[in-house]
Amino acid sequence: MKRSDIRVLILRAPGTNCDAETARAFRDLGVQVDVLHTQRIFKERNLEQYDILVFPGGFSYGDYVRSGAIWAKECEYHIGGDLERFIDEGKAVLGICNGFQLLVEAGFLPGFEGKSPYPQAALANNVPGGYHCRWVYLRHVNRGGCPLTASIPRDAVLRIPVAHGEGRFLLPRDLEREYLRRLYENDQLVLRYAKPDGSYAEGEYPFNPNGSFHDIAAICNPEGNVLGLMPHPERAYYGWQLPDWTRYEDPPRYGDGRLILESVVNYVERRF
C-alpha cells in the first residue's frame, strides 16, 4: 500500500489532549490523518475506512474510576465488535499513555486469548506516587513478534518522555509469573525502562519512573498489531523536542519517537 494512501484515525474523547501533536507527527510521515471525536465514530461506525487507529494521551472523562476506564467501556459498548474486526484484519492499533490504559481496561492488552472480558493487567498509581513528566531511556526488547516496531533494531535504546500519574504496569499477583512467561513466549514485551547504558532499570527510580513490574513500558498483543505504550513518541518526534538538543552543533532533525511511529506506518505499508 502506498504511504500516501494510508489512513490514520486518531480518536478523542472529552479530556483527550495529545491528539494534535500525534496528528502532526503522523502527517509528517506522509500519511492521511483524521482526528475525530469518538461520539462521531459511534454514530457513523466507519472504522473500516482506516488502516491505523490511535488512542492518544490525555485524561479521558477526567480519568475518574481508573485511568481510561470510562472511555474503554464506552468504546466496548458502542464499537467493541468493530474494534475486534479491525484488529482481526491485522490493522494497526496504537495506544499511547491514556490510550494504553484504555487498551488494557478494554481487555485488548495483553489479550492472551484475544480480547478479554475483564482487564488482565493494570496501569496502577505510580510509585513513587503522583504525576511525573520526565524523559526516560527505553530498551526495545521485542524479538520481531511485534511488527509495529519491526523497523527498530533489537536492544536499541530510545529516549522518549513519559507524563502520567498512573503508569505502573502490573499483572495480577497470583498470575504474575505465568503471565510474564506468556508475555515472553508470545514475544509481547516491546519496551522496557532502562538506564542510559541500556541495562534494565531493575525498578530503580527515576529510570523506571513509575515502579512498573519488570520495567515494562510497552507491550503488544500476541499477534503484535496492537501496541500500547506509556511513553509519548509524539513528544520525541522532532529533534528540537529533545531535552538537550541545544548542546548539538548540528542538532538531529528527528527524535527517537519517530522511529516508533514510522515503524507502525512501515508495517501497514508492507502488509496491505
Binding site: 503522583g130 518522555p161 507524563a163 523536542q241
Partner: peptide
C-alpha cells in the same frame, strides 16, 4: 508534577 511538554 506539571506536564510541561504536552502539545509537543
Amino acid at each position: 508534577t506539571y506536564d510541561h511538554e504536552v502539545k509537543g
